[in-house]
Design a binder for these strands. Sequence first.
DNA 1: CTCATCTACAACCATTTGGTTGTAGAATAA
DNA 2: TTATTCTACAACCAAATGGTTGTAGATGAG
Lengths: 114, 114
Amino acid sequence: MVVDELRDADLDRLFQAFADATRRDIVTRVTAGEYSVSRLAEHYAMSFAAVQKHVAVLERASLVTKEKRGREQIVRAHHDGLQRARRLLDEYETIWRQRADRIADILAEGEEAL
Amino acid sequence: MVVDELRDADLDRLFQAFADATRRDIVTRVTAGEYSVSRLAEHYAMSFAAVQKHVAVLERASLVTKEKRGREQIVRAHHDGLQRARRLLDEYETIWRQRADRIADILAEGEEAL
DNA sequence: CTCATCTACAACCATTTGGTTGTAGAATAA
DNA sequence: TTATTCTACAACCAAATGGTTGTAGATGAG
């Protein structure tokens, strides 16, 4: 029962993008300020090309955008992606909490029955 | 600058676990009620072993727990994992919002200067 | 006891992922 | 112009991922 294949693929990309410490760090950095790809690359013990790939993953997940400025490519946070991820986790938590509440109710009923 | 390798690995596992539609669906189901592994497997177009692996991934990510009951293994949601994920995304959003506020302030200062 | 059910786990396979090096183009600096 | 910087992208590689089938051990039902 695949409800929405497109949305599923989007979420796959979104969470996959977060599933790497380097990429999470990139998100943190570009959320706090402006970075070109090469400036980002200075901070990691890996090749420029590897960082470039990480940025590409974040871009496909709609978590960052790139904007050309001269010969540089400026990476910026794209807030929408973050919001989508949070909203989904909120949904899960809401469902969970409803369940916990239901259990609490059942327990309360049980006490009344005593 | 790896701040906390253990925490990083935890988060890797956590988001990786969410990066698959089947696993997200499993989380939804076990959040709403009790399922044995084989009852979960009924809902997906894949082998029992595959579902077993998905559950194992969720377990390693501390998103679900398994509890033996007779010959069945009951899968339950483990709320802490969800909370951790949400908290991190909250942090990102907080940072982002602070940045947005700072920009707003700068723009406001600019208007005063006019 | 015997049979069916539920689970665990190994072995295997194709694809993806995360890294590398190398080449080439575009924009800036001297 | 020439050299340097920043980026893009291809080709390659090892390891992880997501699936399969098959085997075997526990447990419950008849």
